[in-house]
Amino acid sequence: MSTASNASMTITGQSTVLFHVDIKLSDGSAAESTRVHNKPARMRMGDGSVSAAFEAQLLGRKAGEQLTFTLPPEDAYGMPNPDNIYYLDRNKFSAESPAEVGAIIGFGMPDGSELPGLIREVAGQSVTVDFNHPLAGQTLTFQLEILEVQ
């Protein structure tokens, strides 16, 4: 009795999948790619790291397959949450991290992690910082190359 190799394993709801992904915006411009630093993504099916709609595209696929699919915002990175927009006092910013529209600044969190925030507006002493994922609210096209299935 021989065992199946990784190349013939089909993705199921319990699989771990290693894949390269290129994400494009609706205008065709590149948003993100794991190929840039040659660091493929690894995910366990059902762990909640991606949407059910994303996982549904992977079910039944095998290593070596390539696929392209488009997801609406609610199945990709979600819709922007107004609760993730904060208004900070301009004096909270420094010369190293000035409050400039379009800048992405890492803000230290109580647990020691860093959360990136996009500066949307500067009005007087008030700075509007958006902590939503930069791809929230976007319809995205995903191009995947499945490298390994476990």
Rank of each mutant, 00 (worst) to 15 (best):
M1K: 06
P82S: 12
Q66A: 15
D89H: 03
T68H: 07
I119F: 08
A123Q: 14
Q150P: 02
G117K: 00
L144N: 04
N38H: 12
D75Q: 15
L58R: 04
T139P: 07
G64F: 11
Q138E: 15
P82E: 13
E74I: 04
R35I: 07
A30T: 01
V122W: 14
L67G: 04
F107H: 09
Q14W: 04
L18Q: 05
T141G: 07
T139H: 08
A7R: 07
A53P: 05
P40F: 15
V36C: 02
Q150T: 05
I104R: 02
G48S: 13
A56E: 15
S5D: 05
M1W: 06
M109N: 08
T3Y: 06
N84T: 07
E145Q: 09
G102P: 06
N132A: 10
E74Y: 00
N81D: 15
N38T: 02
I11N: 00
D75E: 15
A53M: 07
D22S: 11
V101A: 00
V101Y: 05
S97T: 10
P40V: 15
G64K: 10
V50H: 01
A63M: 05
A53D: 12
V101P: 02
V129R: 10
Q150L: 07
R61D: 08
S49T: 11
L71I: 05
L135W: 14
V36T: 13
E65G: 08
A76E: 03
N81G: 05
T68G: 09
R120F: 06
L147V: 09
S29V: 06
A123H: 11
L88M: 15
G28S: 07
Q125E: 14
A103Q: 04
M79V: 03
S29Q: 10
N6S: 10
L18G: 03
G78N: 03
S15W: 00
H37S: 11
N132F: 06
G117V: 06
R35Y: 09
A41W: 04
M1C: 04
S2R: 07
A4P: 06
T68Q: 11
P116W: 13
I23S: 08
V21A: 14
H37R: 13
P40M: 15
A52G: 09
L67N: 02
A4W: 04
V122Y: 13
A7S: 07
Q138R: 15
M1F: 08
A30K: 06
S49F: 10
R35E: 08
P116F: 12
G48E: 12
Q14N: 14
R120E: 14
K62E: 05
F69M: 14
G46I: 12
I23R: 09
D83W: 05
T12P: 07
G117W: 13
A103L: 03
S26N: 10
F54K: 05
H20V: 10
I23E: 12
P134N: 12
S8I: 03
R90Y: 00
D89G: 00
D83S: 12
E121N: 15
F107A: 01
A30G: 11
S97E: 07
I105H: 01
V122F: 14
R35H: 09
T128M: 13
S29H: 08
T34P: 14
F131T: 00
V36F: 08
Q150C: 03
N132G: 09
S8F: 02
R42G: 03
A4Y: 06
Q143V: 03
E96F: 05
L88C: 09
T141L: 06
I105M: 00
A136L: 11
